[in-house]
Design a protein around this nucleic acid. Structure first.
Length: 571
RNA sequence: CGGGGCAUAGCGCAGCCUGGUAGCGCAUCUGCUUUGGGAGCAGAGGGUCAGAGGUUCGAAUCCUCUUGCCCCGACCA
């Protein structure tokens, strides 16, 4: 491709509403352009990259035995009513009417449509397992679209759905998809982790999220240094600490006046204790209409997901109103403690060994110090209530936890029978007996992958594309091409040679100054670059530089072709 | 959805408080000079100042409404 026929609409200045690097660079390089909130047009440069990502996904899905289909993006409401999600799905579902006033939605996902397809099409166990996928535009009316393509409302997704007679069979396909996903992200040159994910309200047995590791990631991931354990921080379980008897150092419990200390920070400061020596008492609503006290070490954070799964706790987790607290305890928030409290008490595992701790006195303006289990109050029920932290033991018992940030780019899920039951999707088994299908679903945010790749591969000059996603493999930058016939004819020859070799090459045939060419090609992140100048031609060499190399080096034409051939093979 | 902010040329911004008919940098176009890391000089084009209504002799500027966009917020004892 020639730059004269493939305009580089690059910007020197950063559009003011672009917050994260990928968004800034996608706008500056002219990959995308915003149409409205969460809506973007893919320009030729960006689309080239998006297509590369799609191609890799497609190839690996095909290789894993999935079959491509293309479903409508507009879906009739009836199917969603049948599955029950017409009511369940909130405002995130874009609903609309046609001219006959029939209801439709723009598909955020396709479980209903695919299940409908399969229930009509597939009759016999002999046709299973079946794994169908599509690469298609989805729409989710996000509360707050942001970060450009990363969290847009309209986006490109690869979604696959598998159908099975048995759970065993589902697990095999699930494993196959796990492998395929790993292969896809490896081929793209990404640093990623597969992490245990919430099976949540959908139920099912297993779910993994695939995260690209990047500072700007919206999710925190806990991973183990010495094993392949990884989980979303919200989900990573903590093991209970061992019980131990009251130690001899147990000091006398006493009441201390702490008039202005309401937060853990203030309490620990005024009592000259560390936050870890304090216990905080949170009151949440219970299923029976009353309250439940949750105890955490002062330096720990409550994990809402874990808490609302506990027996008796109201889901979604709701904190008690101030008036309810006053009615139950007789003092305002800030001075609550677990002693002599008239409601169930659940304490985090980390408090099992806690001694001589401080807590609220249930009396405005006072806290207790040197409180100890058994002696001063009965042992509460212990449970896993908090977020895992750096340095905690790994749940698989193999070393300690570290935390990094990740961008979720893929999610695989064992759905089970949720949709097939609701939509009555069944086949006849070997005995001629009707069997409800077991399903799996597998998504990749293809457009998000592109943004995530940039988050992981950039420097102060621009994007550094991994070769597999690069819009072009190599740039030819002629110096003074309009003045030097030698440079011109050499570049033209090299250009057509590389094209013949099957290499995607971008020849900068603009009448531009070298500085502009260097800046543009660095910005758009072409992995390889050769500079052709009269000076070097006289020496019979080219100047080569890899995008992330510190320095350029001289290279012969033959060596360049050989090297590029090698690189191409490795993609 | 709650809170805050913004809307002026393709992009980044000034002008608004104190009303007088729109400006700067980048980008674009022309010419000359330059030519190894976003050049210099000279010139040119490009704006219903988000929209509607109001006040006024006169509104980008003041008032009202509407729309769009951006940021923060679902961990508080």
């Amino acid at each position: 491709m020639r730059v004269s026929k493939f305009p580089l609409n690059t910007l020197k200045e950063i559009p003011s509403d672009a917050e994260i690097v990928s968004h800034q660079l996608m706008l500056r390089t002219g990959m995308i352009r915003k149409l409205g909130a969460g809506l973007y047009t893919w320009l030729p440069l960006g689309l080239r990259i998006l297509r590369k990502a799609e191609t890799i996904v497609r190839e690996e899905m095909d290789l894993a035995g999935a079959l491509e289909v293309l479903m409508p993006s507009v879906q009739p409401a009836e199917l969603w009513q049948e599955s029950g999600r017409w009511e369940q799905y909130g405002p995130e579902l874009l609903r609309m009417h046609d001219r006959h006033n029939r209801e439709f939605c723009y598909g955020p996902t396709h479980e209903e449509v695919i299940t409908d397809l399969v229930r009509k099409q597939v009759r016999s166990y002999k046709e299973l397992p079946l794994n169908l996928y599509q690469i298609q535009t989805k729409f989710r009316d996000e509360i707050r679209p942001r970060f450009g393509i990363m969290r847009s409302r309209e986006f490109i997704m690869k979604d696959a759905y598998s159908f099975h007679e048995t759970q065993d069979c589902l697990e095999q396909t699930y494993h196959g998809m796990y492998q395929a996903y790993s292969q896809i992200f490896s081929r793209m040159g990404l640093e990623f982790r597969a992490v245990d994910a919430d099976t949540g309200s959908i139920g099912g047995n297993a779910s993994h999220e695939f995260h690209v590791l990047a500072e700007s990631g919206e999710d925190a991931i806990a991973y183990c240094e010495s094993s392949d354990y990884a989980a979303n921080v919200e989900l990573a379980p903590l093991l209970p600490a061992a019980e131990k008897p009251l130690s001899k150092q147990a000091a006398e419990m006493s009441e201390v006046s702490t008039p202005d200390a309401k937060t853990i920070e203030q309490v620990s400061a005024s009592l000259k204790l560390t936050a870890a020596q304090c216990v905080k008492t949170l009151l949440v609503k219970a299923e029976d209409g009353g309250l439940i006290a949750l105890l955490l070490r002062g330096d720990h954070e409550l994990n809402t997901l874990k808490a609302e799964k506990l027996d008796g706790v109201l889901a979604p987790l709701t904190f008690a109103e101030e008036t309810e607290i006053k009615a139950l305890i007789g003092c305002p928030p800030g001075f609550i403690g677990p002693l002599a409290i008239d409601c169930p008490v659940l304490a985090d595992y980390s408090l099992i060994q806690q001694e001589n701790f401080a807590c609220g006195a249930n009396k405005e303006g006072f806290h207790l110090i040197n409180v100890n289990w058994t002696r001063d109050l009965p042992q509460p029920t212990f449970a896993d209530l908090r977020n895992i932290q750096v340095g905690d033991p790994s749940p698989d018992g193999q070393g300690t936890i570290k935390i990094c940030r990740g961008i979720e780019v893929g999610h695989i899920f064992q759905l089970g029978k949720k949709y097939s039951e609701r939509l009555n999707a069944s086949i006849l088994d070997q005995n001629g007996k009707k069997t409800i299908l077991t399903m799996g679903c597998y998504g990749i945010g293809v457009s998000r992958v592109v943004a995530a790749t940039i988050e992981q591969n950039f420097d102060d000059r621009g994007i550094c594309w991994p070769p597999a996603l690069a819009p072009f493999q190599i740039s030819i930058l002629p110096i003074n091409m309009d003045k030097s016939d030698k440079v011109r004819s050499f570049c033209e020859q090299l250009y057509s040679d590389l094209l013949t070799q099957g290499i995607e090459v971008l020849l900068d045939d603009r009448k531009a100054r070298p500085g502009i060419m260097f800046a543009d090609h660095d910005l758009i992140g072409i992995p390889h670059r050769v500079v052709v100048s009269e000076r070097n031609l006289e020496k019979g060499v080219l100047e080569y530089k890899g995008r992330s190399d510190e320095e350029s080096r001289e290279i012969s034409v033959e060596a360049l072709k050989t090297e590029l051939g090698q690189i191409l093979k490795s993609i």
